[in-house]
Design a protein around this nucleic acid. Sequence first.
DNA 1: TCCTTAGCATGACATATGTCATGTGCAAAT
DNA 2: ATTTGCACATGACATATGTCATGCTAAGGA
Lengths: 229, 229
Amino acid sequence: MRRISDNDLLNHYIVKHHIENIFDKDILKHAQLHFYEKEEYILEAGSNLEYYYLLVDGKIKVSYPFENGKSMLLKFYREFNSIGDLELLKNILILCDIDAIEDTYLIAISSEILRKEYLDNVKFLHHLIDSLSEKLYATINNGSYNFVYPLINRLSSYLVEHITDKNYIVLHSSYIEIAQFLGTTYRHLNRTLKELESKSIINWENKRIYIVDEDRLRELAKNLYMKSL
Amino acid sequence: MRRISDNDLLNHYIVKHHIENIFDKDILKHAQLHFYEKEEYILEAGSNLEYYYLLVDGKIKVSYPFENGKSMLLKFYREFNSIGDLELLKNILILCDIDAIEDTYLIAISSEILRKEYLDNVKFLHHLIDSLSEKLYATINNGSYNFVYPLINRLSSYLVEHITDKNYIVLHSSYIEIAQFLGTTYRHLNRTLKELESKSIINWENKRIYIVDEDRLRELAKNLYMKSL
DNA sequence: TCCTTAGCATGACATATGTCATGTGCAAAT
DNA sequence: ATTTGCACATGACATATGTCATGCTAAGGA
C-alpha cells in the first residue's frame, strides 16, 4: 500500500464519483488516498477496520473465510463501491478478505472518526442504506450461485474476471489459494482446469492460462460474480 | 390472514418491542395488526410489497427461490424482526417466500405511505440501517452453511426448528416442498430421513416424525439457521 | 553435493447429491 | 367400477466433489 499525497487526484475522484453527496466537506478533510497494486492484499478477515473505504478506481475481490479454513468467493467489486459498512456500523472485526486484482485506488477515512462524529450525518446514513441494501441484494443472489452451480461455472467466471487485453491470464496466487478462494479443493480445481483444457476452452501452461475460446468460457461463466453490480 | 382490530393488543406489541423508537406516532396511526396462522403463507416472491412488516409475535421461515424452480432456505425469524426492508427501499418485487410456521402476529404499515412520506424520517432510517446490517451479516454467515454443510445437517436444523412441546413433529408441507425449501430433491431428502432413522435419531411414520434422540439431532443441527439471530 | 520442503500433478477411492424409471396406494373424476 | 393423477417410496446409476497416498521438481539451506 502507498499513501498518495496528490490532492488533485483525490479531488478528481471526489468529483468523478460525486462523493460530496455522501460526505460533507468537513468529513472529506480526513480523506486519504490509498494505492494498492495488483495482487496486493487490502484487508484480512479478523483484523480491525482502521479505515472506511470508497473504491474509486481499480478492481478487488472479496471472499468470506469459514471456521474450517475454507472460504467462499463473495464477489468482485469495481468502482464505485464502499468497503467496511458492516464492520463500521456493528463495530466488529473485519468479516471478509479483500485483495486488489488490478491496481486500485481507495479513498480512506478513519473509521474511528466516522464512528465518533458522523454516524448521525444524514447524507452518510443515506449512503449506508444504499450500500447495505445493494450488498444484501447482491449477497442473497450470489450465495445462491455458489450453491447452485458447480465449480466449472464458478471457475469460468473467475477466469473471465481476470481477462486482460492479452490473450492469456497470469495467475499470481498458488493453486491452493485459488481453490480456497473458490470454495473447493486443490484437487478439484486441478481436475476442472483439465476439463476446460480438454474441451479446448483454455490452454494451460504453468501459471499462464491461454484463453482459446472466450465465448464458450463466458457462456460457462454466466457472469456470476459481477451480475448483480 | 386475519386483520386484528384489537387496539389494545396492537399497543401491547408497540410497547413490548419499543416500536416508538422506530416509528413516530403519526406513522403508527397507519399501523395494522395482521394475524397468520401456523403454516399459512405470508409473502410470495415476485409479488408486490403492499406492507412493510414488523414481526412482533410468532415464527416465520424465509426462503429464496431460484430461476430453475429450486429454492434455498435463508433463515427462520422470530420476533423481533422486520420484513420487506430491501423491497421497500429498492422498490423491487418481493425477493423471498415467507411462511408462518407458528401462529404469527405482524404489524403492517402500507409500503406506499412509507415510501412517500417517511423515507427521510431519521428514526426510521436508523432502524433500516440496523435491520439491513443485521440481515447482511446473517446472510453472509448463512449462505456459507448451505454451501459447507451437507443435507443431513440442514435437515436436522430444520427439524429442530419445528420441535414443539410434543415428542413428535407433524409436517404440513409435502415432501417435495420441503425438499425445495431445503434446496435439494425429494429423492435425497427421503434418503437422508431414512439415514436419520437408521441412526435411531428419529422415527418416521407418514408425516409424523418422532424425535428419538433430540441431543444428537441438535448436535447435527449445529443451530445453523438461528445462529445469527 | 545432498537433503529438505513447498508447490504442483495425478490415480484410486469415498461421499454427497442428482436423475431417471418404476411401483404403490389413495382419492377425485368419469 | 374404472380411470386418472398425485404424493410418496425406492433401486440403479451418473455426476460433483472431497480425501488420501504418492510422486515429481525446483529452490534454498546444511
